[in-house]
Simulated assay, not measured.
Amino acid sequence: MSSNDLVSLGELEYARRAISSGTSVDALVDRFLAAVADPALRTRDFDAGQAMVVVSEILEDAGRLDEALAVLRRADAEGIRGEYLDPAVWVPPMLHRLGRYEEAAAAFRELVKAGRADWTAYEVYAEQLEIGNDLAGALKILLSGQDRLLRQGHRRGAEILAVPLSRVQRAMGLPVDEPVDQDDWEEWDDEPDVREIFTGGVLHWPQADFGRLLTRWPGLAERIGADWDEHRTRTEKASAAFTARGIPAVLCHADYASFTAFAPDIVDEPPKETLDGYINQLHRQGATTRWPPERNARCWCGSGRKYKQCCRPRGFTA
């Protein structure tokens, strides 16, 4: 691989599609691991921690769970963490899938002891226990997670865990602690001002269209993000902020061709009124999706990955 053969975050997330079209698993894994090791082989948006998680998923999809675990443990040993994902969080559920239950529990306890167990760590490990029909274990993990997060002042994380907790309680025939209504969430200190981003919905631009849009109107970067990765984070956070205020979030699926047809005479940066009008058109055309997806559904951004491992963490941890 030459220094001109750069790896991007978008390429990483579409890796599964490359495999389905005949690309070698080993070739893809080697390509991404090389970019993790050498910054000269990656574009600016490449996230080494996320890369290690996705590489482990590629190997797991190929039935190579031991290698997938080795990738996660290598990331942990070398201190490779992503902006939104800590590869070590995925070690306990991977060990559990391998049938190494005591090791999985020990690895999870180590995460908690080291202060690295955020809401994601509790959720994904409890989910794996739930899949393995260890409902009592899942219940214990979720209850302890809620308690610890509340004591640490992370109310939002505790509220997120209320959803899987109520599901496990129902499955066990126990009285259900209903999830906290998102209308009652506290204001997010770092939430974007939704009204300043878009009014009446949240515009999502696919990666290729996003690039064309900023090439023509670079000033839009202040409103929709400087790159597609930032755009996805803003989209997720704006949707979450709408929901937290009791407003149903709706993703409006934009594209460059329909937007330029909607506003053919725009020369300078499109004003907010034009973008709002475009949102209304997308609503009328039904080019919208209610937010959020289910945790295990494919992510709304089109990456092909599960929502819980892709854009969902961006809204809560960005």
Rank of each mutant, 00 (worst) to 15 (best):
W119P: 00
F46Y: 11
G145E: 01
V124C: 10
V71A: 09
L72I: 11
D118F: 00
G63L: 10
G99S: 13
L143E: 11
E67H: 13
V54A: 02
L65M: 15
G63T: 12
M172Q: 13
G115P: 06
D47H: 05
I160G: 00
S144F: 00
E102I: 05
I160P: 02
P164E: 04
E130C: 00
P92D: 11
I160M: 00
E102K: 09
P175V: 07
A138V: 03
L149F: 02
Y101N: 12
V124H: 04
L149E: 01
E102W: 01
V124A: 05
L69H: 12
E110R: 13
L69N: 08
P164H: 02
P92V: 06
L161N: 02
H154N: 15
P175E: 14
A77E: 15
G153C: 13
H154Y: 12
W90C: 06
A121W: 00
I131W: 03
V176Q: 13
A106L: 09
G82Y: 03
S56V: 06
A105Q: 14
G82D: 05
R97A: 13
F108V: 05
L85T: 00
G115C: 06
A88H: 06
A77R: 15
E67I: 08
Q152R: 14
L143V: 09
A117I: 04
V168R: 04
A158I: 01
